[in-house]
């Protein structure tokens, strides 16, 4: 049972990481599909919590999510396995195929493939926001928080980590 869990973690993060073209943010929707929809390790709302913690801290987002989910599913071994799943395949590809990659990363074929996949990545990220939204807006005040976030990001240019911190203090004062 424990080993199947570790194997599932490994496979979930390997799949998510190796289909996510466009860096960490492109991996988020794929992690959500594995973690929320396929294995039901977290709910949509819990996944939003994981993203909140991840966005409040520095460093790559994909490995933070792997650590967060891995620990909740199988403790520290789960962290290790989810991390290995996230980074090992691409790390091996980089080191073993370095010469090949340096030669072909600027080829028009690869550029064309990446251009083709980018709209898909964006739709997936937008869909993730949309789905996490169900359950995240239980009352009118939470819509106010969302509106304030849009303003803070686009006009006040506040840092996302700062907005997360402010919203938590706000929640503590208003929603308790």
């Amino acid at each position: 049972m424990f080993f199947t869990q570790l194997w599932d973690l490994f496979m979930a993060f390997t799949r998510a990481s190796n289909l996510g073209f466009g860096g960490g943010p492109a991996v988020i929707p794929l992690i959500k599909i594995e973690v929320v929809e396929r294995y039901h390790w977290l709910t949509n709302a819990q996944f939003a919590d994981a993203l909140a913690v991840g966005n409040a801290l520095p460093g790559p987002i994909a490995t933070k999510l792997a650590g967060y989910v891995g620990y909740q599913v199988s403790g520290w071994l789960g962290v290790l396995v989810a991390l290995i799943g996230t980074i090992l395949p691409t790390v091996l590809a980089v080191v073993l195929l370095m010469g090949f990659l340096r030669k072909y990363t600027n080829s028009p074929i690869l550029k064309g493939m990446l251009k083709g996949v980018r709209p898909v990545v964006i739709v997936l990220i937008a869909q993730t926001a949309f789905e996490m939204g169900s359950g995240s807006f239980p009352n009118l005040m939470t819509w106010g928080v969302a509106l304030a976030t849009v303003v803070s990001l686009n006009w006040l240019k506040l840092h996302p980590a700062l907005i997360i911190a402010i919203s938590m203090v706000f929640g503590l004062l208003v929603f308790r």
């Binding site: 939003a48 995240s136 969302a146 849009v150 929640g171 929603f175």
Partner: peptide, 12 residues
Amino acid sequence: LMAVRPVVVILV
């Protein structure tokens, strides 16, 4: 968490 979830939705 209730206050932070809408923020995360907007961030994504």
